[in-house]
């Protein structure tokens, strides 16, 4: 029983990342009609915002310590971060320790800016082009972005730890007399994802801006005829979708050390999530994200693998095939979306 609950938690955790990325993908597809294969790269750029802030906070000056030697036998240059010199070792050390949560503030404007430039500079020229063209250009953009990141940060994973206070484990089953030990940061990630998803739905549901965007998603021409500049709002939505992917990346860095390829690792899975959820359906993307995350976790259980060897590698695609055969529009897909 403990093992099953643990895998459900793992699945919800994985599903959080899938859902956040798929939510952004669906926002872009639903508003602009663009199939954005560069969306995984936005997740990766978000993660590297955390790496960058960590490096900024660790910027140091060097003092030569004659009593210590470096690997070549020369006097050792001891590095002291400016932050620690300015605020003292305790406060300065705490600021560095909390680099990842602080990176949320750092990443939001950067990601909105990246999204805005991406949409205005490249993707808007492909609105009227076939989906195949959009896929090719955005996939090419994703490769360019990851190579740029690799040029500056290298190919190896970069350790970006959670704050010490959130680094341990918590027994989630203590209240019911069970032993369900789970990493604190993964619990934080899940609730963070729920918060972001809730925020996006509330924004679209309860604000005038959101109402116009939803109207534009339903009937772009009519909204345009009412004199509303729907293109500008959709551009802003692209920026918001980029920020959602970026924040998912920022918070993911303590779970797995970021590397330049992490966006591609999530991209295909996220597209499957979008298709299973139903193209253009925001609730569908979230539902499918969590569903596929949980199924993927269960498929990794030894009991399941012993019955169906290799199932962990194909489960998501098997589920996608079954759902698309039985519900061709996905779990919550709307009629008319990508059907013309």
């Amino acid at each position: 029983m403990d093992a099953i609950l643990l895998q459900i938690l793992n699945g919800l955790d994985k599903g959080s990342a899938y859902a956040l990325i798929a939510l952004g993908l669906t926002l872009i597809f639903g508003t602009l009609g663009v199939v954005n294969f560069a969306h995984g790269a936005l997740f990766m750029i978000g993660a590297f915002c955390a790496v960058t802030l960590q490096r900024i906070l660790n910027l140091s000056f060097e003092l030569v310590d004659e009593t210590q030697k470096d690997f070549l036998g020369n006097p050792l240059k001891v590095k002291t971060p400016y932050v620690e010199a300015w605020f003292g070792p305790d406060i300065g050390g705490s600021i560095i320790d909390w680099a990842v949560p602080l990176a949320i503030l750092f990443a939001i404007p950067i990601m909105i800016g990246v999204g805005y430039v991406m949409e205005r500079g490249l993707i808007k020229h492909f609105y009227k082009r076939p989906h195949a063209d959009q896929i090719l250009v955005t996939f090419g953009l994703a490769i360019v972005l990851q190579e740029v990141v690799k040029y500056f940060y290298g190919a190896n994973p970069i350790q970006t730890p959670a704050p010490d206070a959130l680094n341990g484990v918590v027994n989630l089953g203590a209240a019911i007399g069970m032993d369900i030990v789970y990493p604190v940061w993964r619990v934080v990630y899940f609730f963070f994802a729920v918060l972001i998803i809730g925020g996006i739905f509330s924004f679209l549901q309860f604000t005038t801006f959101g109402m116009v965007v939803r109207a534009g998603m339903a009937d772009r021409e009519t909204v345009g005829l009412l004199g509303i500049n729907i293109d500008r709002r959709f551009t802003i939505m692209f920026g918001i979708a980029a920020a959602v992917a970026g924040l998912a990346g920022v918070m993911y860095t303590p779970i797995n050390s970021p590397n330049y390829h992490m966006g591609m690792d999530f991209l295909v899975l996220s597209f499957v999530v979008v298709v299973v959820g139903g193209m253009g359906s925001l609730p569908g993307a979230v539902l499918a994200g969590f569903l596929l995350g949980v199924l993927e976790s269960f498929a990794s259980m030894n009991e399941v693998k012993s019955l169906l060897p290799g199932i962990d590698q194909i489960i998501i695609y098997v589920v996608a095939i079954i759902i698309l055969l039985t519900r061709p529009r996905g779990l919550m897909g709307r009629k008319g979306v990508m059907e013309e």
Partner: peptide
Amino acid sequence: NKVRTPLAATDFSSYIAPVLN
């Protein structure tokens, strides 16, 4: 136990969890 993990795997949490029990 000897559990094979996909080379493309990134999050090993679902492979680590069974180790606990």
